[in-house]
Computed example of a mutant assay.
Amino acid sequence: MPFKKLQADLLFDGHRFRERQVLVLSEDEIVENIIDLDQAGSDIEKIEGILSPGFINCHCHLELSHLKGHIDENTGLPAFVRQVVQKRNFSEADILAAIEAAEAAMLQNGIVAVGDISNTLHTLAQKQKRAIYYHNFIEAMGFNPQVADSNFNSYQHIYNGFAEQFGPKQVSITPHAPYSVSEPLWQKVITHDNNGLLSIHNQETEEETLWFQQKTGGFADMFKAMGLNTDSFTASGKTSLQSYFHRFLPRQQVLLVHNVYTTKEDLAFIRQTGNKVFWCLCPNANQYISRALPDIAMFIKNEAAVVLGTDSLASNHQLSIWEEIQTLRKAHSNIPLELMLQWATSNGAKALKIEDQYGSFEKGKRPGMVQIINSEARRLY
């Protein structure tokens, strides 16, 4: 059987950098081995720059791609949410064309797998082409407890549409955010079959903290403007994460997304829960919406399991994990690139429960390949 032998200036295997090593692939890009250059023989293809496994985008809203350039920047989250709701009136043809273009850009940028949020079936046809692996998080929201049943039924319909095509392993019904899901709806979501992997927007804004601690701030104003009755909600006096996380079941693996206002006390709290938790950072979206970034040094010091996401083109100028890394490197030049590439590859694969095929150059895997040259990243395979 013929093999491809690739030698980069620097090989990142999903965990660490390796020098003077050759990646051996089968004809269909399945990893066979990594061997020393001295043992590799001839017919070695030289790759300039860094060679990495394909990137994992752990948080995206592909269905919002048509909103690129239509949402004002630096408004704060409550105003951002209102804009998204008000500006979603596009034709289906425009929505589907934007989805196709956005996926093509992700492929070019080296993204091989995505944790994608879906409120509709708009992305289904594109995903059926299977150019990228998707875990489809069907996002449930509904603040009014009296309509929990009807809300859940609509999400079950969307779930069925994706599950029929991809099977239950690649689909979850998941809560949108702690401030947008009533208690009855929450119970229906977390007890749904096959919900071993869940995602939730967490501590994206200081307004979330104010809402859970005091029932004040931007969310109080937003709910009032939307005509929502908030009598069923009682402030806990604690951070949002410490107020709601107990609602998850012990067996559930959870992706916490954004985490801009997460504290070291929150990290300590999560360590006591027993749940397997991954902390997804979306720095470009945080900059776009509120000019903020999470406390990266705190996550590293506490050895948190960090992964990366792009959020949507409503809140980002591109869907590129490498651009997320670049933003973090500008803000934290002391953080090793090796660590950030772990977040983008092997950690991301574990977060989406696909480490058997993605995230690292290990025998039998087909993780895709990214070439990084002069601060640019592009897909090789």
Rank of each mutant, 00 (worst) to 15 (best):
K4A: 11
F12C: 09
E19C: 03
V22R: 09
V22E: 02
I30G: 06
V31S: 11
E45L: 06
E45N: 11
K46W: 00
I47Q: 04
I50Y: 01
L51G: 09
F55D: 04
N57S: 03
H61S: 05
L62V: 10
I71Y: 01
E73N: 02
N74H: 12
G76S: 05
G76N: 02
L77C: 04
F80P: 02
R82H: 11
Q86V: 06
S91Y: 09
M106V: 05
L107W: 09
I117N: 13
N119K: 09
L121A: 12
H122D: 13
A125K: 11
K127C: 00
I132V: 14
F137N: 08
A140Q: 11
G142L: 13
N144P: 12
S150K: 14
N151F: 15
F166I: 06
P168F: 11
V171K: 14
S172M: 13
S172G: 04
S172C: 08
I173Q: 08
P175F: 13
P178T: 00
E183P: 06
E183R: 01
Q187P: 05
I200C: 11
T205D: 15
T205C: 14
E207N: 13
L210C: 04
L210E: 08
W211S: 07
T216Q: 15
T216G: 06
F219E: 07
G227Y: 03
T230D: 07
F233G: 02
G237V: 00
T239M: 06
S240M: 08
Q242Y: 01
F245S: 11
L249P: 09
Q253S: 13
T263K: 10
K264S: 09
D266Q: 03
R271N: 09
Q272C: 05
K276I: 04
L281P: 04
C282N: 14
A285W: 04
Y288H: 12
P294C: 04
P294G: 03
A304F: 03
G309R: 00
L313P: 07
A314R: 00
Q318M: 05
Q318L: 07
L319Y: 04
A331D: 03
H332I: 08
P336R: 11
L337K: 07
L339A: 10
L341I: 11
Q342I: 12
W343D: 10
T345I: 09
N347I: 02
K350T: 10
S360R: 12
K363E: 14
K365W: 07
E376L: 13
L380A: 03
